[in-house]
Simulated assay, not measured.
Amino acid sequence: MVGATSHESAGHGSAAATPVQPRAMRADARRNYDRLLSEARSAFAEHGTDASLEDVARRAGVGIGTLYRHFPNRDALLSAVFEEAAGDLLTRSRELLHAPEPCAALVKWLREMVTHAGEYRGLARSLMSVSYDTTSALARCSGPIREAGGALLARAQEAGTVRKDVAIGDLLQLTHAIALAAEETPGDPELADRLLYLTLRGLKDS
């Protein structure tokens, strides 16, 4: 990943490493975790997900080693940052399972996925890159999201409004690509909606 630090390339944590959960920490470690997460959100919002991890640690008032103890690699930090948005998407998917129009509910959920993926520049690309990689720390978020989207897709397919050959993995990749296109075209705020409309047309069973 562009912007990766020398610490990352030196092997601080494998791709399968996951962030330490804050509930198991001492009070001082929990404070460090919370500060790192807060500063990571700010840095990613300002500079994108390729922001310097050394800068994140400096802004949090800790050493880079402390950051890596909590987040063994960039994907682990991204996973923690995206976890709240992922929780929102999971809650929303459960609500939409009861919507009267299954296909419209699926597309509405995908639109919210685009919105969350666009919160940080580079996040959509990262989510695309781990879509089929279960070893990445980001899979902690992408796995449950795939299941949630799969349930909405299955309901729409059972209703006969979405083609049976549509797979949730392909649909999520397409959604991440739409989020990336919207990110790369900030002067066209309607782009994501137009692309999702085209997606809807392609999803419908003839």
Rank of each mutant, 00 (worst) to 15 (best):
S6R: 15
S6W: 15
E8D: 12
G13I: 10
A15P: 05
A16F: 02
A17N: 07
A17P: 08
T18K: 10
V20Q: 04
V20L: 09
V20C: 02
A24F: 11
R26N: 11
A27C: 03
A29E: 07
R30G: 00
Y33I: 00
D34I: 02
L37F: 10
L37N: 09
S38P: 00
A40M: 08
A43R: 03
T49M: 09
T49F: 01
S52W: 06
E54D: 11
E54T: 07
V56G: 04
V56I: 15
V56R: 04
R59Q: 14
R59N: 15
I64Y: 12
I64C: 03
T66M: 11
Y68M: 05
Y68V: 04
Y68P: 07
R69V: 09
R69W: 12
F71H: 05
P72T: 11
P72K: 08
N73K: 06
N73R: 07
N73D: 10
N73H: 12
R74D: 04
D75F: 03
L77M: 11
S79L: 00
A80Y: 02
V81T: 09
V81S: 05
F82I: 01
E83M: 01
E83P: 00
E84F: 06
E84R: 15
A85F: 01
T91N: 12
T91I: 00
R92D: 15
L96K: 06
A99I: 11
P100V: 05
E101P: 02
P102M: 08
A105K: 11
V107F: 10
K108C: 10
M113Q: 15
V114R: 01
T115M: 01
A117Y: 06
E119H: 14
E119L: 13
Y120V: 11
Y120R: 15
G122K: 11
L123R: 06
A124G: 15
R125K: 12
M128R: 13
S131T: 03
T134M: 12
T135W: 06
S136A: 13
S136P: 09
A139H: 13
R140L: 14
R140Q: 15
S142H: 08
S142K: 12
S142L: 13
G143E: 11
P144C: 01
G150T: 06
G150D: 08
A154M: 04
Q157I: 05
E158W: 02
G160C: 02
T161Y: 02
T161G: 01
V166C: 06
A167Y: 04
A167T: 13
G169R: 07
L171V: 07
L172P: 00
Q173C: 12
L174N: 14
T175H: 01
A177M: 03
A177D: 04
I178V: 12
D188P: 09
L191S: 07
D193M: 00
R194S: 02
R194D: 12
L195N: 03
L195C: 00
Y197V: 05
S206C: 12
